[in-house]
Design a binder for these strands. Structure first.
Lengths: 342, 342
DNA sequence: TTGAAAGCGCTAACAA
DNA sequence: TTGTTAGCGCTTTCAA
């Protein structure tokens, strides 16, 4: 049986209260008792029971994260890195991270409500925001702490971190045109996802600024998976007048598009340009290495987590709403020579 | 403020005890009171406070998972899928999953001890076992519940699930030889990992059975990442007499090797065969699609989780030690034509 | 069939 | 400087 504060108290010959205070560094304990208590607690291997502390403090010290994944065989590297970013930062602050996965929809909302109502978490990280985001509406409605990764379409009266992907895709469009690819296609995720809008808008703007445009027939919607990117790229490449560039809205779909282009025997970076978004570790090691927009996912996870904890603890946030400037990562998939090739 | 069992009791005009019993379906409550209690609880939106229940039951209903990752930018698709498998199954049983990431070593052990001593989890899932696994030695030593994914070198007196990867790699070796590739290399993970041994042993056996062998110069050790596979493959391909087949011990390293081969202008599947292990979703969509050994990662995660929960609850396990038969997935990277190519 | 009381392990207001 | 007491929200003996 584990040693409790009571055991320590008995051994020291003091009250439980005194032990508690000594251990927490209160200054109304004599130096003598403090050292004694610390010594004995150490000797006996005392650890406070986290559950009891939490019940008493009426706090769970736990953060919730519901990953919106379709299908069980989810293995989005993006999420694993984001998760690590949150989890490690949470641990630094003594918080636990409660993770689950649910496809967007009813069961997902149920997971949120369940966690709130049974008081299992102190706050949520909401990831992959939607245009009109029910999760955010709900949490905002009941005034429950959360920080989002991403923005929404409505009023932005909540804390979030986001990358300015509109700007990122604008740069990308210009880069593609500059590289001499003019029949430009885009594979975007379902339009309900907020970042779909930003990326598509940005892409259109960039093309316009470079004197081009995105034709409707060259716009495809897909599901952010490699398979999805593969299928849509196949459709594009089977057209009478296929595009000479495909900008996918995430790296995974870009990988799928690359595979499709490979199978058509196209020289990627020369006959066709393909681009992604995210810069997951794999994109550097793909064949060919993928031109993409960098998102510092791990750091963003940490940042979001820290903001959430501050929010929960009622500490004022120095920045409530953070928008990060993205940077282009130019690699061979758009015909840019990288070091390794020189 | 959240509604407690006391609130419900007052409203019903019964004692807290009765309400508790009614809600838990005890049969010493009159049908009348039961329905009344249920109705009122529902109306008031009562949810039991999980923390209080747990404190009282002296259980955390929480499972621990410490992912052994090197470096923060971990994004091993293998782990994300495994995690989803565990997490979703845990949720089915009303258990929480506490996730953290630590590189193997002292901090990792500290994470385990910390969680045990402050009674934050009821048991652990131990993943990616090592030859002499300190985590397992520790947990076994204090008789703390855990289930491992993988075996160890010493006495196997603990519950685990593992794939017979020795057999898997034996099949793979034979397949490679059958396809006509004879100068065979292998990229294995650090030999301390238990599955490294099984896979390497199996590979050697398979080669021997097919009349070949693994020359020392063709054996490289790496770190399970794409970058690692890329670097080692480059070393192999730069040799005077480079191998004509590279068997990597996981898919990620195989991807790296494929990239290296691509850069050398080699026709993969024809001039050189490259194989992986795991069959992560991406391997099907790589270019070329990767011949590999399937592991049903999501299902394994669920299975391990279920075993652990039974173990915690003291229910006898129908199978304490599960070894799954692997199956080969033949694709183009070893010259096998797949449907899409016909 | 029900309720009073104890207790899970801890913290904190209050009194001494 | 220390101890008494109450209480976090819940479950569960035990007695009525």
């Amino acid at each position: 049986m584990a040693v409790t504060i009571k055991d320590v108290a008995q051994r020291v010959g003091k009250s439980v209260t005194t032990v508690s205070r000594a251990l927490h560094g209160y200054d109304d304990v004599s130096e003598e008792t403090r050292t004694l208590v610390e010594k004995v607690a150490e000797e006996m291997g005392y650890r406070p029971n986290t559950l009891a502390q939490r019940l008493q403090k009426r706090t769970t010290d736990t953060l919730g994260l519901v990953l919106p994944t379709f299908g069980p065989r989810f293995s989005d590297p993006f999420f694993s890195e984001f998760l690590a970013g949150i989890g490690n930062k949470a641990a630094d602050f003594g918080y636990d991270l409660l993770v689950s996965t649910q496809p967007p929809g009813e069961r997902e909302m149920h997971a949120y409500k369940q966690a709130v109502e049974s008081r299992r978490v102190d706050g949520f990280v909401v990831v992959r925001t939607r245009m009109n985001d029910e999760r955010i509406n709900y949490l905002r409605g009941i005034d429950f702490p959360f920080v989002a990764f991403g923005r929404t379409h409505g009023e932005l009266d909540f804390p979030f971190v986001d990358e300015d992907s509109q700007h990122g895709m604008r740069l990308m469009a210009q880069h593609i045109i500059q590289q001499g690819f003019h029949r430009v296609a885009c594979i975007a995720p379902e339009p309900d996802l907020m970042f779909a809008k930003y990326r598509l808008d940005g892409f259109r703007e960039g093309l316009a600024e470079a004197g081009g445009s995105l034709e409707d027939r060259y716009l495809k919607y897909s599901d952010l998976t490699q398979r999805g990117g593969y299928e849509k790229a196949n459709e594009l490449l089977a057209m009478d007048e296929p595009p000479t560039a495909i900008a996918a809205c995430n790296d995974l779909m870009a990988f799928g598009a690359i595979r499709a282009a490979h199978e058509q025997g196209l020289a990627i970076g020369e006959e066709i340009a393909i681009t992604g978004f995210d810069d997951i570790p794999m994109s550097e090691h793909f064949h060919p290495p993928l031109t993409t927009v960098n998102q510092p996912i791990y750091e963003i996870g940490g940042r979001v987590c820290e903001m959430l904890i501050h929010h929960i603890q009622g500490k004022p946030l120095e920045e409530e709403q953070v928008i990060l400037k993205p940077s282009l990562v130019l690699r061979e998939s758009t015909g840019v020579e990288t070091e390794e090739d020189i």
